[in-house]
Computed example of a mutant assay.
Amino acid sequence: MVPFAGWEMPVQYSNLGVLASHNWTREKASLFDVSHMLQTKWIGKDHTRFIESLTVADIQSLPLGQSTLSVFTNTSGGIIDDTVINKQSDSNLYVVSNAGCAEKDLKHIREQLKGFQDKGGDVDVQVLEAFSLVALQGPSAAKVVESLVGKDLSDFKFMTSRHLDIKGIPVYISRCGYTGEDGFEISVPDSEVVRLSELLLENPDVELAGLGARDSLRLEAGLCLYGHDMDEATSPVEAGLTWTIGQRRRTEGGFLGAERILPQIKGGVPKRRVGLIVEGAPAREGAKILSVDGEELGTITSGCPSPVLKKNVAMGYVKSGFHKQGTDVQVQVRNRLQKAKITKMPFVPHQYYRG
């Protein structure tokens, strides 16, 4: 167990080491306790207009029951946090953001909320404090959930959500996750989370997994970790998240930092987030990235051995112009220069269920 964002979190469980847990997730299904994540409900007739003032998402065009990944931005165009927004109904949004940013996110949201309400805006943001969150991830996830709800879920697609009853437990379940695999995130009342977890773990294909496997799985999937691969000094364009900016938002703007972010889409940025395959020892956060001629290009933000590829993978930022796939670079690991190559992400193909 380790301290994590004000919580005590398991790195691994006793029955499976980190490597075995990682591979189990890729082959069967793992259950992650992610109750530390911040769950909020946004209500009021102006909730869409308010959240669009804080994020780059086009919520107006989002269909009911659909989710989208987005980012909260600051006035200088940096990323305050990444978040998943779901249109739960016409009258409310269900939003999940990072535990490590919860205090900062809420302070920012409440400051902006007061100004919005003072101008007559009808909106409120409620923290769902009586709810836990668990994530079931892996190729067996769907059949495990189907066996408990007693119905076929082939019409339940990636980045959609719905209310379900699991053996008498009311849940709000989203088909998404942070591993690159098919799977679900399940919001459940605190009073029922242990019973729900025990029901899921009764299936022989399900094992508990902790932070160690979660980190290597998300890195293989090319997914960012806030505070490492993106932060308040990094724009969505630099972070390779331009795709999160809705087409309408690119024309209309209207979100914090739009004056910096929108010109970057056409005009370019000084640095770019890239994937790397590194020879030799694994490159960890903080390692310098250099050109083959020795010019300093940037820094590694995440890195580990890939259990699937049996190679060392890493993510980092390099000077624009050196970000193209196939570019040879060097990485400094413990005062030694090691060969590396800029590589497309995800390193391991996503297995999201799109129907």
Rank of each mutant, 00 (worst) to 15 (best):
V2I: 14
M9G: 03
E27S: 13
S30G: 14
F32H: 10
K41C: 14
D46G: 08
R49M: 12
E52Y: 09
I59Y: 02
Q60Y: 09
S67N: 03
S76L: 09
G78S: 12
I79E: 02
D81T: 12
D81E: 07
V84Y: 09
D90H: 14
A99N: 06
K104Y: 04
L106P: 10
R110G: 12
E111K: 15
E111A: 13
D118K: 04
G121M: 12
D122C: 01
E129T: 15
A141V: 12
A141I: 09
K143S: 15
V149Q: 03
G150Y: 06
K151Y: 12
H163P: 14
L164E: 07
I166T: 03
G177A: 02
V194P: 05
V194G: 11
E198W: 06
L201S: 05
D205W: 03
D205P: 05
R214P: 09
R214G: 12
D215N: 10
D215F: 08
S216T: 12
R218H: 05
L219E: 14
L225D: 10
M230T: 07
S235D: 00
L241M: 01
T244P: 00
G253P: 04
G253C: 04
G254D: 04
F255E: 02
G257D: 15
V269T: 06
P270Y: 00
K271N: 09
K271R: 13
G275P: 02
G275S: 04
E279K: 08
G280M: 06
P282Q: 01
K288Y: 00
I289G: 15
L290F: 06
L290H: 10
E296Q: 11
G298R: 07
I300R: 01
S302G: 03
C304P: 00
C304S: 04
C304H: 00
K310A: 13
A314E: 10
D328E: 04
V331Y: 10
R336P: 07
Q338A: 00
A340S: 11
I342A: 05
T343S: 11
P346Y: 08
F347A: 07
P349K: 08
Q351V: 07
Q351I: 01
Y353S: 03
G355S: 04
